[in-house]
């Protein structure tokens, strides 16, 4: 009956956030969510295999902290104006994750972090091309992405 339980719960929660937390809206929202998840099921998307979902909050807070830090770094770069020492550039990073949901999540994390934009994923050799605003230390970027995000994502989407 419920092909995508997480989607159904999220939709119900969103309905109640937008209206109000009452029994009537719980029933109405759940009804809408059930029909919406049936519609989703008829599209037959890949079902994400969440193995260690309890690690998601940890990932969330790590990303929140990193985004705040890079916000400050990029804001400082812009305020300081043009400098000679800064070098922006492209960066190719080989990845090991292949799960599509995990890749999508990584793309969102990297792109919504100021200072790095995901440009393309090459499924042929499993590498991504990124553009980085402050390419001071290439190794450091690769180590951050592989050690900080990829490892955690691989644990979550095992």
């Amino acid at each position: 009956m419920l092909p995508y339980p997480i989607l159904t719960i999220s939709l119900t929660l969103m309905w109640m956030l937008l209206n109000s937390f009452s029994l009537g809206h719980l029933i109405l929202g759940a009804l809408v969510a059930v029909f919406a998840s049936w519609a989703m099921a008829s599209l037959r998307p890949d079902k994400p295999k969440l193995k260690k979902w309890y690690l998601l909050p940890k990932l969330f807070f790590i990303v929140l902290y990193d985004i705040a830090r890079s916000n400050l770094a990029v804001a400082w770069l812009i305020v300081r104006g043009r400098t000679e020492g800064r070098k922006a550039g492209f960066l190719t990073i080989p990845l090991e994750i292949e799960d599509r949901t995990a890749l999508a999540l990584l793309a969102i994390i990297l792109t919504s972090t100021p200072g790095s934009v995901w440009m393309e994923y090459d499924s042929y050799d499993g590498s991504i091309l990124m553009h980085v605003l402050d390419l001071k230390d290439e190794e450091d970027w690769i180590a951050t992405i592989k050690g900080r995000y990829e490892k955690l994502l691989m644990e979550i989407f095992a």
């Binding site: 985004i67 990029v74 812009i78 919504s112 972090t113 100021p114 200072g115 790095s116 934009v117 605003l133």
Partner: peptide, 10 residues
């Protein structure tokens, strides 16, 4: 491309 990400994140 990197600058608007400031407005859309924090």
């Amino acid at each position: 491309l990197h600058a608007p990400a400031l407005g859309t994140s924090w």
